[in-house]
Amino acid sequence: MYDVVLLVEQELSEPDAKRVVELHDDMPEPVNYHVLVPCHNAEAGVEASISALGTADLYGPGLAGQREDLAEAQKAIDSEAKGCTGRSVERLRDLGQHAEGGISHDRPIDALIATVKHVQGQEVIILTRQHVVAEFFHLDWTNSARRHLGVPVLHLLEQDPQKTAAS
């Protein structure tokens, strides 16, 4: 079994799923895809934003009363991420592939490294929208993954489903 870890920024579209599978058409052994979807941590995001504004001393205590709202927001975020993962896995399975998936609240690169180690991944595919500034400064997921992993890392840009349908 050849294990490929897919780090996706959003749900894998049909054209992107086909493109990923086509990359491995000539593999002599079966391919197992592991879809990883990073999931935003609502509470940490709010706290980081308040700290970045330098207003933590003004609003920090106020967060205690917001815990319930943040927990509800986190449930909604987790639900969406799980749905995204499930639909992405299903698209790969519809193409006759072995696939599984999960979400992570860790930093995307930390989650990717852990997943590659856990499944003994032999290849990583990172599928994102274009991030010009991050890519220019080599701060994007792909460059980080290449620095931390000893396996091939391929960066694919998501295809716009509307443009693909028009072609």
Rank of each mutant, 00 (worst) to 15 (best):
V20F: 06
I77V: 07
E80D: 10
E14N: 09
N32W: 12
G54M: 10
K18L: 08
H24C: 06
T85P: 00
V35A: 05
G65P: 13
H34K: 09
G96H: 11
H34N: 06
H40Y: 15
V46P: 09
D78K: 08
L95C: 01
V37L: 11
G65K: 13
H40Q: 13
K75W: 04
G60V: 08
L58C: 02
I77W: 01
V46I: 15
G62Q: 09
V20M: 00
A76M: 00
V89K: 00
T85C: 03
V35Y: 04
V31T: 07
N41R: 13
E29Y: 11
I77P: 01
P38E: 14
L53I: 15
M27L: 03
G96T: 10
R93S: 00
N32I: 12
L92F: 07
L12C: 05
I103S: 01
S49D: 15
Q74V: 11
K18G: 00
H34D: 06
D25I: 11
D69Q: 04
V89I: 05
I50T: 11
V37T: 09
G54V: 13
L95K: 02
L63Y: 07
H98R: 15
P30Q: 01
R87A: 07
R19Y: 03
E68Q: 05
V31Y: 09
V46Q: 07
L92T: 04
A52T: 11
A56W: 12
A56N: 13
P28E: 03
V20D: 00
S51Y: 15
K82Y: 07
P38C: 15
P30D: 03
K75R: 11
R87D: 02
L95F: 01
C84T: 14
H24F: 09
A52E: 13
H98Q: 14
A99I: 08
R19S: 01
D69W: 09
H24N: 06
E29D: 07
Y59P: 06
T85M: 01
P15D: 03
E43V: 10
E68T: 08
A73P: 06
A81V: 07
D26E: 12
C84S: 00
E14D: 12
P28R: 04
A71S: 09
P28D: 06
V21E: 04
N32K: 13
R87F: 11
A76K: 05
